[in-house]
């Protein structure tokens, strides 16, 4: 296990390094004047000069990248702007603050959004999938498959906006979504994010229902499930301890991908509900053309995906002892 984790961590680090290098090169070597892009749409001459000087644009691109990379591990000094402590992902000339501070500031919103909806869509998706599989061909199964088909085909910016219009503005069922830190008031935190959670869950549940149903149907036909039944085990035990366990592997796979993608920034959801998370941050960085911030958000999103991939692979062995990590 340890050897596997070390190997995969190194592999993940290599992938991240490649992504960092590629993004850095594309963002800083391709444009004619990266300093202007990094400085923002409204750029006073002195800030432009600062940006040009501090990005080290007079040096070869490789040296620039190494300096940026070194900054991530040991911090970096910016002339006239002060020290940016490690992990220094760059300095935003638009916000006049190190990029990392802003990200840390926005991260809780995205994590809360992901966490809440992930719990809902995982529980709801798996249970509807199990129910559908147990009632194969019956009305419940058909309802589940039709609703998951629609759920999988609908767009967040459509349902989300409809939900806002009807639930918030027309019928006053719920307040406008907003973020209250969990530590301030857990109830307000949950209430403020309830609508985005539900809308995200509508979109994602469908996948889990379909996946759980098809794998469960397969599992119910397996010999070991029949054996368990034949020896007189209660149906509940057969389903939860035997059949469900076998369906976990594909579910964990897509769950890892979904959570990784969401943590990296639920761009569309955050835009639809005007939540100030990482996704909104990256869009604002594009609008303000804040290159260092953009670079950091791209890397963060990539890191989230890569890290969750490793976690998922390690979990396979826990779920299914037959899997050998190599």
């Amino acid at each position: 296990m340890l050897r596997f984790l070390t190997r995969r961590t190194i592999g993940a680090a290599v992938i991240l390094l490649i992504i960092a290098a590629v993004t850095f090169f594309l963002f800083f070597a391709v444009p004619a004047d990266p300093a202007r892009l990094a400085c923002g749409k409204i750029c006073p001459p002195e800030t432009l000069a600062q940006a040009r000087h501090n990005l080290g644009l007079d040096q070869p691109i490789f040296v620039q990248f190494v300096e940026w990379l070194a900054g991530v591990f040991v911090g970096r000094d910016y002339d006239g702007l002060g020290h940016c402590p490690a992990p220094c992902l760059g300095y935003s000339f638009v916000n006049h603050a190190p990029v990392f501070d802003t990200i840390v500031d926005r991260m809780p919103v995205t994590i809360s959004l992901t966490l809440g909806s992930a719990i809902i869509f995982l529980l709801f998706g798996v249970s509807t999938g199990v129910v559908a599989a147990l009632n194969q061909g019956k009305a419940l199964d058909k309802i589940a498959s039709v609703s998951s088909l629609i759920g999988a085909s609908v767009q967040i910016y459509f349902v989300g906006t409809l939900a806002m219009y009807f639930l918030v503005f027309q019928w006053d069922v719920i307040e406008r979504p907003r973020y209250v830190p969990f530590t301030d008031n857990p109830l307000q935190w949950a209430y403020g994010l309830l609508l985005p959670w539900i809308v995200l869950a509508i979109i994602f549940t469908a996948n889990y229902t379909r996946m759980t149903r098809s794998t469960m149907v397969e599992q119910l036909g397996e010999d070991y499930v029949r054996t368990a039944r034949a020896k007189g085990m209660p149906a509940r035990t057969v389903i939860t301890r035997f059949a469900l366990r076998g369906t976990l592997t594909p579910i964990v796979t897509i769950f890892g991908i979904d959570v990784g993608t969401l943590i990296g920034g639920a761009i569309i959801t955050e835009t639809t509900f005007s939540l100030q998370g990482i996704g909104r941050l990256s869009i604002q960085a594009v609008v303000n053309s804040d290159l260092p911030m953009l670079m950091a958000t791209v890397l963060l999103a990539a890191a989230a995906i890569v890290v969750f991939n490793v976690i998922v692979d390690a979990l396979y062995a826990v779920i299914d002892p037959r899997v050998r990590l190599s």
Partner: peptide, 23 residues
């Protein structure tokens, strides 16, 4: 392929579009 599949594609396209225009 590994690297491409780990790339946050939507975000990258959003981010890179202004760079292309700038170029």
């Amino acid at each position: 392929i590994d690297v491409l599949l780990s790339f946050p594609s939507t975000l990258f396209i959003i981010a890179f579009m202004p760079v292309v225009e700038n170029l």
